[in-house]
């Protein structure tokens, strides 16, 4: 189209309209951006800042100490125990819960009345807050009065100190945590599965593909985005485990807290018990780096062509 004066005018008119739209969008976004900055970005930057200081919550003198907090973390035995425990917790919870959730979603993919009941039943634990759930499981795990040991002893087996035996306690919490999140991941997988167009399966059927071949070549590749999302949130949630450990392992009837020490518990202890905010912030930075690194690995592993 030649650049006649009329065309140029209309072109600028459109641009002007776009500019106004752009300005409008910016104005609408400003409150959200400000909130995001205040609630997310500034606290994260603040944490980095605190991690470089000997910042005691109560003391007025809070000197800059460079990387000393990070050097201390390397030598900190409790941090190492917490890191190992949290890693074990994350590996088990993420691998088992994501795999089981996928299997359940595959089983419940076709809509039916009984299927809806199972979906509801599996999803229910997710909507119950963590504190009451932890208390219920603490009772179920009770060595003397717990229902699990009641069943075991009724079958002539030996009672187990589910929360009192340091070799077992972490795994008891892992089982409870898998039970808690399983339904949520299953529902997410179901959404992903139901969004895969039927024509892919029909084409596969025409080509003679069945069972594992269909899963390997159609279902799994088309679920990669959802699997990535679930894996990332599962990893982040697992690395941030705290409530169930705190509720189930403290108190005179509980397990030794040190045996199931996890990173966020360790950070909580340093920050809010000993008021060493600088050191706790350095631990947060390390946790942030670990989770970020694992998330990037997951992105790499589950990358699809459209990313």
């Amino acid at each position: 189209m030649p650049n006649t004066p009329t065309n140029i005018k209309s072109k600028y008119k459109i641009k002007g309209l776009e500019r106004r739209k752009f300005r409008f969008a910016m104005v609408i976004l400003i409150p959200t951006v400000i909130l995001y900055l205040v609630l997310r970005i500034i606290p994260i930057l603040g944490t980095f800042y605190l991690s470089l200081h000997n910042w005691n919550l109560i003391k007025l003198h809070r000197p800059f100490i460079g990387l000393q907090n990070f050097v201390k973390i390397v030598k900190d035995k409790f941090f190492r125990i917490a890191l190992v425990n949290t890693t074990v917790f994350t590996v088990f919870v993420v691998l088992i819960s994501v795999t089981l959730a996928l299997l359940l979603a595959l089983a419940l993919k076709k809509k039916s009345k009984i299927g809806s009941f199972y979906e509801f039943a599996y999803f229910l634990p997710f909507v119950i807050p963590m504190v009451p759930v932890s208390i219920i499981w603490k009772w179920m795990y009770d060595r003397t009065y717990g229902i699990i040991n009641f069943v075991l002893t009724s079958l002539g087996l030996k009672a187990v100190g589910w929360l009192t035996d340091p070799d077992v306690a972490l795994y008891s919490i892992i089982v409870m945590s898998i039970w808690k999140v399983l339904g949520y991941y299953m529902v997410l997988f179901l959404v992903g599965l139901r969004n895969i167009p039927d024509q892919y399966y029909e084409a596969a059927a025409v080509d003679g593909a069945v069972g594992w071949q269909v899963f390997k070549n159609i279902t799994f590749p088309l679920l990669k985005r959802m699997t990535l999302y679930i894996s990332v949130i599962a990893t982040i949630q697992a690395f941030n485990v705290f409530t169930q450990v705190y509720v189930m392992t403290t108190g005179t009837q509980g397990a030794p807290a040190a045996a199931v020490r996890v990173l966020v518990y360790e950070i909580y202890q340093n920050g809010f018990r000993y008021f060493k905010m600088g050191y706790a912030s350095a631990q947060v930075v390390v946790l942030f780096a670990i989770v970020m690194f694992i998330s990037l690995l997951q992105f790499k592993f589950f990358r699809t062509e459209d990313y």
């Binding site: 009192t164 392992t249 403290t250 108190g251 005179t252 009837q253 509980g254 397990a255 030794p256 807290a257 040190a258």
Partner: peptide, 9 residues
């Protein structure tokens, strides 16, 4: 005896 459950206790 108090054997576990919260360090300072």
């Amino acid at each position: 005896l108090r054997k576990f459950g919260g360090g300072s206790g």
